[in-house]
Design a protein around this nucleic acid. Structure first.
Lengths: 345, 345
DNA sequence: CTGTTAGCGCATTCAA
DNA sequence: TTGAATGCGCTAACAG
């Protein structure tokens, strides 16, 4: 065609221009590992500027063994909770001077493994992992000696580090808050039974209910996916029952939003006819109608801790970090006297 | 420590094990560029399996010049619209056999440029770009000879390919639909004036209003950020006015969600006291209370077209693709006879 | 059909 | 303080 192969300037061009060796260029670019004379450095810098040199990250990765990138695998980035978490993670990763590779497994176990392998092939320096279920196969990463941290949906037996909120205590606190309102007929929409997250939140609710010696109508225990669709379906079933509970704990925020949509469909008023609390605490619950009371996950802390764990030199011990939550009270669970609520227990 | 440097198996290990040369290993791994005898291939495959070989993507990228990755830059991945788009893009990119690198510019012009450079350094094969404003500086990419496609917020003067929905026609159709309801007092929440997207949607609304010879109270023209917060602020101002419009076109979905929250605050009923239409059409509008009528952007098409443009060999002509939209009618704009509505014009 | 070998751009050790 | 040289793992000519 028109010209020669559009090839970028390399160290060699800089060296030639500056009248030095390529090694010296490296030294000034990386500020080490050896010192460079003031005058030489200036010449090199001028040359870099003149030829428009920018180091090739790929070559650097190959030679040094570190790629400068972390990988993030999520089941579905269009899920607001994962998106919010990804946003925080990106920030934490950037603060580490690295970039973040995004992999969306589309809720597919198979795609999840493919992504993991793909990342590993790219010499990723560490992997942030949110699995589609609680039995992720992360052996490939361990085998390759790559750090991996599991987020949110945690398998405590996997032998890898993890960061998650205290799901049991959170749902326990949420349920207790409903009980404190004086509600006695309290239902739950729980998540898929194969997720520890869902089981833990279920357990918290059960514990609070048992402790308060409250009976539970089994028809008020719905199980659905952690999605708006799931929440709406649960709501439709619930609202077709002859008798409604006074309150419902929706195990995740997306379900709560769906439940709200179903309530509107059926003319069920929230919180007058049904009080609602939920779990997660992204902006979704703030902007819902009515705004939803929720256990808030500290996304920022989760992200920071996770990235810190990833940045540790390999061979470190496995740590399973559990974050504290906060309770955010809004109109959906009924009128408040404005009293503060303890974080948990 | 315990063992030797945890170094992965390479082609050489495979070759040794199989008793062949490294080239042959390449040939069977890549299915070319030269044929390999059946028997040899089998030996190689067995050897690969035996030593647990997995090709090093970094080395491959360096040697071949293609990295197998596309980069995506978005202003904020926690924005549901961008998240939904990213989800579709990831899918389209994966279908191309590539991975997607995510960069979140956090609405910062500076970070946006940093990300672009970072991607370029990593020999990204192409960049999907959603800028924080309509004057993105993408010269670095052009200079490096890397394909780049601008999405959503398009600058028609940039000389780069782009994909976007027809914003003018979309808002024109939405406004006309409101007019068809018989509303004559119609307001607008428009987006930041520095975004073409916002200006175009504004223009579509203006055109429809002018064409219907409808007067506009300037106090019913609000300008706010494309966020829920912005929408809520606009709503609060609007609902403090002595007289409300009958309908409002919220320029993006996030604003509409915020507007709904403000309406609930002020006891303004939707659609009885105020009809609402909006633009974007992610799940957010479906699950809002009430569900929101909206111009729907064909995210799937946008993603496919964008990735196709990216996959073209370099040196191609600049194309600015404009996608069709659809209108999705829901309760928020008032009762319908159920008549279908033409796509546009 | 298969083996050999020269790069890809950079980090880094070893000399000078 | 600087230069030369080796290697990272792989691709793709170029020879057999």
């Amino acid at each position: 065609m028109t010209g020669k192969k559009s090839t970028r300037a390399t160290r060699e061009d800089v060296a030639r221009q500056a009248g030095t060796s390529v090694a010296v260029v490296s030294y000034v670019v990386n500020g080490g590992p050896r010192p460079v004379a003031e005058a030489t450095r200036d010449r090199v810098l001028a040359a870099i500027d003149s030829v428009g040199y920018s180091p090739n990250g790929i070559a650097k990765a190959l030679a040094s063994g570190v790629s400068g990138a972390y990988g993030l695998i999520v089941p579905d980035i269009s899920n607001p909770f994962f998106a919010a978490l990804a946003h925080e993670l990106e920030e934490a990763v950037a603060a580490e001077g690295k970039v973040l590779l995004l992999g969306d497994s589309a809720e597919s176990k198979e795609r999840e493994e493919t992504l993991l392998k793909l990342f590993l092939q790219r010499q990723i320096d560490g992997i942030l992992f949110i699995g589609v279920d609680s039995k992720p196969d992360v052996r490939a990463a361990l085998r390759a000696g790559v750090q991996l941290v599991i987020l949110d949906r945690v398998d405590n037996d996997a032998g890898v580090s993890s960061v998650a909120v205290d799901n049991i205590a959170g749902s326990y606190a949420a349920t207790n808050h409903l009980i404190g309102h004086g509600y006695t007929r309290i239902g739950i929409i729980s998540g898929p039974g194969n997720l520890y997250t869902a089981r833990d939140r279920n357990l918290g609710w059960e514990t609070a209910m048992a402790q308060a010696q409250l009976e539970v109508d089994p028809r008020w225990r719905l199980e659905e996916n952690f999605s708006r669709h799931g929440g709406r379906e649960a709501g439709r079933r619930l609202f077709s029952l002859p008798q409604l509970p006074e309150a419902v704990f929706a195990s995740n925020e997306q379900q709560a939003v769906g439940l709200l949509a179903a309530a509107a469909e059926f003319g069920v008023r929230v919180p007058e006819d049904l009080a609602i609390m939920t779990f997660d605490g992204t902006d979704d619950s703030e902007y819902a109608t009515p705004a939803i009371s929720t256990v808030v996950q500290p996304l920022n802390e989760i992200a920071r801790v996770a990235v810190n764990l990833l940045a540790r030199p390999p061979g470190h011990e496995v740590v399973q970090h559990e974050c504290d939550f906060t309770l955010r009270l809004r109109p959906s669970c009924g009128p408040h006297a404005g009293q503060p609520v303890p974080d948990h227990n």
